[in-house]
Computed example of a mutant assay.
Amino acid sequence: MLPMDCHTHTGISPDGSGMVAGHVEQAKKLGLPVLAFTEHVEMNRYFPQAHYNILPRNEWEIFDHAAVLEQSLEAVTAAKEQAAAAGLTLLCGMEMGQPNADFGLSAAVGADARLDFIIASLHELLDRPDFFCLDYSQE
């Protein structure tokens, strides 16, 4: 069995903290041979807010996930060589939220050659709040 962490978020994601370098150092301390960074990239908010002409419904509903993805890919790609020299394989990934919002866009984004790893997730139904924000007594 090869121990690894394939679902990590830095401060680039609304629910993460820290930076790539800090996560890399912790992975080394733990003796992990593989670490994947999978920042949230929500396909229903991939473009800047003006593109959608809507307001965020809560503090986690950020827009311009294209910029989130680019920032993550640049940071992880830059850290790969140094991490490899220390015996740690870094994987550039993303947690692709709501791929059903635009299958064509999701396929195009997922085809980025810098990506090693994709987690597909569904955090909300289209035109509904994030599952975390629902009042389940009313559902």
Rank of each mutant, 00 (worst) to 15 (best):
E61P: 07
I62C: 13
F63P: 08
F63W: 13
D64N: 11
D64W: 06
H65K: 04
H65Q: 03
H65F: 06
A66S: 11
A67L: 09
A67P: 00
V68Q: 10
L69Y: 00
L69E: 03
E70V: 02
E70D: 12
Q71S: 13
S72T: 08
S72I: 10
L73R: 02
E74N: 11
E74F: 13
E74W: 10
A75M: 01
V76R: 06
V76C: 10
V76K: 08
V76D: 07
V76L: 09
T77R: 09
A78Y: 01
A78V: 08
A79W: 02
A79L: 13
K80C: 01
E81V: 14
E81T: 15
E81C: 10
Q82Y: 08
Q82L: 15
A83T: 07
A83I: 07
A84C: 09
A85Q: 12
A85D: 12
A85M: 14
G87M: 10
G87V: 13
G87K: 09
L88S: 09
L88G: 09
L91P: 09
L91E: 06
C92R: 14
C92G: 02
C92H: 05
C92P: 05
G93V: 01
M94Y: 01
M94T: 04
E95Y: 02
M96F: 11
M96V: 10
G97S: 08
G97W: 00
Q98V: 15
P99N: 08
N100S: 12
N100P: 00
A101G: 02
A101M: 08
D102K: 04
D102I: 06
D102C: 09
D102M: 08
F103C: 11
F103W: 14
F103M: 14
F103I: 13
G104D: 15
G104M: 11
L105C: 03
L105A: 02
S106Q: 07
S106R: 07
S106I: 04
A107W: 14
A107L: 14
A108T: 14
A108N: 14
A108P: 06
V109Q: 00
A111E: 12
A111S: 13
A111K: 07
D112I: 04
